[in-house]
């Protein structure tokens, strides 16, 4: 099976993220980046399908030059080749997921895969929509929140996560787009051999056409989250914090 898997590079999750001085985007200085977590699971699912069924895994990422790092990582883990859709500045941010979907649509039309896997949601801009929009634009069926994939002739049966611990199986004809939820299977690490091999694999770079980038939904401003409770910050050494907490839980909140 020929599988296209969409990988986004996002700011590393443990770093603080702050707005820039104009408050129209984040301050990117000093950020380091990593593969969006659900996308790592989408890649893992694609690699396992290829191992079981044969075929080809093509990784695609849209963004500035730095996103080639996640493509290299995918190649090292076992993807066969990669496409970098080069786009920079505001259009690369993913604040309007339709713009990203249009770029991925280009790659999909060219490659004609049987299956496209995306992550469920990006950890930075977090629209949770790109894969579904892509499916609508291609005229393909889709399923979201996918936690298991069983392919059969011309079809795929997937397990979807519903709310509050419920699940459901859905069968769709191929070609289809699936958005993968985290936890679908244990992630592999790249081996030394894989990393070496990746250096010989192809990353094809294509320029994003300007007309693909028009946005209908515009990020006007980034604001600070609002405090929803009267929060008391307990100060001091760990022992002092602990003593205050236990005192307050007993006599102020009365929950012990």
């Amino acid at each position: 099976m020929k599988i296209l898997v969409a990988l986004k590079q996002v700011p590393a999750r443990d770093l603080p993220v702050v707005a820039d001085s104009a408050r129209t985007w984040i301050d990117e200085s000093g950020l380091t980046y990593e593969m969006n977590e659900p996308d790592a699971y989408a890649l893992e699912a694609a690699l396992r399908l290829k191992e079981a069924e044969g075929g080809e895994v093509i990784a695609v990422s849209c963004g500035p030059e730095r996103v080639q790092a996640v493509l290299r990582e995918a190649l090292a883990k076992g993807a066969d080749r990669a496409i970098h859709i080069a786009v920079d500045g505001e259009a690369a941010r993913g604040t309007d997921p339709s713009a990203t979907a249009r770029l991925l649509e280009m790659a999909a039309r060219e490659e004609q895969p049987e299956l496209i896997l995306t992550g469920l949601q990006s950890d930075d801009t977090g629209s949770g929509q790109t894969g579904v929009i892509l499916a609508a634009r291609l005229g393909w069926p889709h399923a979201t929140l996918v936690v298991a994939i069983e392919p059969s002739a011309g079809e795929v049966r997937v397990k979807r996560e519903l709310e509050a611990g419920w699940f459901q199986h859905v069968t769709l004809p191929l070609p289809a787009v699936l958005t993968v939820q985290s936890g679908i299977s244990r992630l592999r690490y790249a081996t030394l051999m894989g990393i070496k091999k990746a250096k010989t694999k192809e990353i094809r770079r294509v320029e994003a056409p300007a007309e693909a980038l028009a946005a209908g939904l515009r990020l006007k401003q980034l604001a600070e989250p609002r405090r929803q409770r009267e929060t008391q910050f307990l100060e001091g050494s760990p022992a002092e914090q602990a003593a205050q907490l236990v005192e307050k839980l007993r006599f102020e909140a009365r929950v012990l």
């Binding site: 702050v18 984040i26 801009t125 977090g126 946005a215 209908g216 939904l217 006007k220 989250p225």
Partner: peptide, 15 residues
């Protein structure tokens, strides 16, 4: 919420 809840995005429609 954006960036895992670290910031709030304020959006307008252009359409």
């Amino acid at each position: 919420p954006m960036f895992q809840g670290k910031l709030v995005g304020r959006f307008v429609f252009e359409t």
